[in-house]
């Protein structure tokens, strides 16, 4: 155990909260005591700003930027790949270059796009931590970071998929991709039947976050 020292008079963080202890009002979390790690975040941030490592504006801009990242970016890539064969080849070969064609930045860590086929379904996990293609999908959902998903996705993916309501035919193989700090994955799902004649924007609307991680498949109507 190697907790940061902090000259802290008491422990809270939701584990050992003293109800009589009064905290200054927090605009984010009204009536909730400031948890230890929140205080730590504020203290560390203010020290780093004071030391000139970044500014308060840098922090606010980065939070806004993160708020702007969402699975819609990955969905646009998929919709383009479904309608443009050449783009699909380029996306599978080098997602960074292909995404740049649409003005999308995939971030500093390489992302491999894995294509689902009628024979093979792909699923993404990060067993060691929570590596995720954040620049294309936004922040990962809680279940992606959970012990149960991380443990079981590589051991019994078919059962995990069933828990997400995704029943695959027994003859469909499942390939599970374990992400790392240096390599992330996004799934290119199969274009659903019933989507013939749909335009790119409408197609993008079918592509859910879960289908980009591989725990679900897109459906039309």
């Amino acid at each position: 155990m190697n907790e940061p020292a902090g000259g802290h008079p008491h422990e809270h963080g939701g584990y050992d909260v003293d109800p009589t202890h009064h905290h200054p009002p927090q605009p984010d979390l009204e009536d909730t005591p400031l948890a230890r790690h929140q205080v730590m975040q504020m203290a560390v941030t203010s020290l780093l700003i004071e030391k000139g490592i970044f500014s308060g504006d840098d922090m606010r801009a980065q939070v806004e930027r993160m708020d702007g990242l969402n699975p819609g970016l990955g969905a646009r890539l998929v919709a383009r790949a479904w309608t443009d064969h050449g783009f699909r080849q380029r996306l599978l070969a080098d997602s960074k270059d292909a995404a740049a064609e649409l003005g999308i930045d995939t971030g500093p860590i390489p992302i491999l796009v894995m294509e689902n086929t009628p024979e093979t379904h792909n699923l993404v996990v990060c067993t060691l931590c929570s590596c995720y293609p954040k620049f294309l999908l936004g922040v990962p959902p809680d279940w992606y970071k959970s012990r149960n998903y991380r443990s079981r996705a590589v051991r019994e993916p078919r059962k995990v998929l069933a828990e997400f309501g995704t029943e695959l035919a027994p003859d469909v193989a499942i390939r599970v991709h374990d992400s790392t700090a240096d390599m992330r994955y996004m799934i290119l799902p199969i274009r659903p039947t019933g989507s013939e004649g749909m335009g790119e924007e409408e197609l993008a609307g079918l592509v859910t976050r879960d289908s980009l991680v591989g725990v679900a498949v897109p459906r039309a109507g």
Binding site: D28, L29, Q38, Q41, M42, V63, V125, T127, L128, V139, P141, D142, W143, S146, R147, N148, Y149, R150, S151, R152, A153, V154, R155, V160, E163, F164, D178
Partner: peptide, 18 residues
């Protein structure tokens, strides 16, 4: 990875500002 574990809880939460 590969250890026994329970069902995946799909409930999420919106990230707090902190």
């Amino acid at each position: 990875g590969g250890l026994e574990a329970g069902p995946v809880n799909r409930d999420g939460h919106d990230h707090a500002p902190w």
